[in-house]
Design a binder for these strands. Sequence first.
DNA 1: CGCCGGTTTGAAATCCGTCAATTTCCGTGG
DNA 2: CCACGGAAATTGACGGATTTCAAACCGGCG
Lengths: 203, 203
Amino acid sequence: MRDRALCAALSDAELSLLNRSAVRRRLVRGEALFHAGGSARCGNLISGLLKISAVDSEGREQIVALAFPGDFVGRLDGSEPHDVTALGPAELCLFPRAVMAAALDRHRRMEQLLMARTRAAMDEARDRLSRWLRGPAEDRVMALLTELAARAGSPSFTLPLTRGDMADALGLTLETVSRVMSRLRAAGRIQAAGRTRITLPPA
Amino acid sequence: MRDRALCAALSDAELSLLNRSAVRRRLVRGEALFHAGGSARCGNLISGLLKISAVDSEGREQIVALAFPGDFVGRLDGSEPHDVTALGPAELCLFPRAVMAAALDRHRRMEQLLMARTRAAMDEARDRLSRWLRGPAEDRVMALLTELAARAGSPSFTLPLTRGDMADALGLTLETVSRVMSRLRAAGRIQAAGRTRITLPPA
DNA sequence: CGCCGGTTTGAAATCCGTCAATTTCCGTGG
DNA sequence: CCACGGAAATTGACGGATTTCAAACCGGCG
């Protein structure tokens, strides 16, 4: 994990120093890590999957990003504009903001890594604008499934989101997602064992 | 302008040094600054408005961001994943990538400014996910107009986008945008003189 | 004056959202 | 081990909003 996280920039000595203020945290499905408004901590996702979401004025939830293992979560300035919630069992390594900020200040390489990640997150958000939130529902669902397969590193994977979560991510309703999944299965564009075991044909 | 751009971090001497490799560029409406794939330059938008867009497999364009005066455009690593096009007459100050990268390497403050901007751009993209690309067409159009009014610093402004551009930004069709604009005008939710002079009522 | 890009408007078809009824899955307790 | 309960998912019907296709309109510029 360490090589995937920001800590890759640190020496062993520095790492153990940082680790003294580290807090391990485990979440279960649906448990909130942060709420919109602020947080005193930030850190890395070790395992599991998080959703980063906003709730609009009508009370509907929009997922603006997913966090995968190795991703940095939280803000250095404590301004957390979104809710961050576990989609399943998840494990994190958290630090007080001040500690993280000091580490970044000390290690330029670490700061550059964070910069690169932020850029990547921006590109991902923009990508989603074009690939997940336009066009017919079928295309959106396929785009999401394709992304998850890519992240899983295999065309066969366990779907970590409920239909409702998928709907919130894609800007659709739960029912539409369900119908589309059924249609995709019937058309042979995906294979499904149970409700969460998905396989994408080579195509 | 300088105080709004990254150069705010530089001393006069450093600035004049940097300026020796600066290139001024003017664009007319529809003229491309970058094409998806790569570019050798990056810099600041001085005046005018740019659209940053991707073209999907069906040939439709999705605007993933707008660039306003003072915004940084281009990438330090040359990987430009989007098309960047002028929405109207625009003026830029460009540098070779290597020069910009060296300046950032030398001036930590400048690098931090760029970092802050990248974060802001990410938040903006995520915001748009929830505010521009879901809900009824009327809400989306109003959200765009409100944003433009805020950027213009006045409830009365000249619409810099064609109906087609608005549609590409909002994930709608040109016709729907036109219909919605007519409806909004009829309902008194906006005032329009000619096709581009817009005024938003105080609300 | 007439072209042309941009815009408006219309009518029909389609897709998606809403409301509502079932059904499936899965963990829990008997 | 099975039955039960509830959450998640599926499916159906219907209405409305948006897209699509098509035609007409406006305004600037050669």
